[in-house]
């Protein structure tokens, strides 16, 4: 059985999304949480490329993917900066330590 290029990309996208979401649910380190988020977004970038290909508008799809990279990098930077501050002032990078606000 041979897969077409679109199908391969599609499977990759779904895998990346799934891995990233599983990561959000499972990992305990704040840095890894940000990494999981990044994995999901990377999946979506591929998704834009794929959608451009399917819709017959490859250039638009790819340019959107690049824009997603730009915006998402900012989010990642802020997330990591917050993680650094949390490590500094709360003394831990563990998600479970991050539960002072509840109820």
């Amino acid at each position: 059985m041979t897969l077409s290029i679109s199908e391969i990309i599609l499977i990759t996208v779904i895998l990346l999304l799934g891995i990233g979401f599983y990561g959000l649910l499972a990992v305990r380190n704040l840095i890894k949480v940000i990494v999981s988020l990044q994995i999901m977004v990377k999946g979506m970038m591929l998704g834009f490329v794929l959608a451009g290909r399917l819709a017959g508008n490859v250039s638009l799809g790819q340019s959107l993917a690049i824009l997603v990279i730009v915006v998402d990098t900012i989010v990642a930077i802020i997330g990591l900066a917050l993680a650094v501050q949390i490590r500094r002032y709360a003394g831990s990078l563990d998600v479970k330590a991050l539960t002072t606000l509840k109820r």
Binding site: L37, I78, I86, A90
Partner: peptide, 12 residues
């Protein structure tokens, strides 16, 4: 720490 925690959760 509390506002950092809130910000981080909000972000994620």
């Amino acid at each position: 720490p509390a506002s950092l925690e809130a910000g981080f959760k909000y972000l994620v």
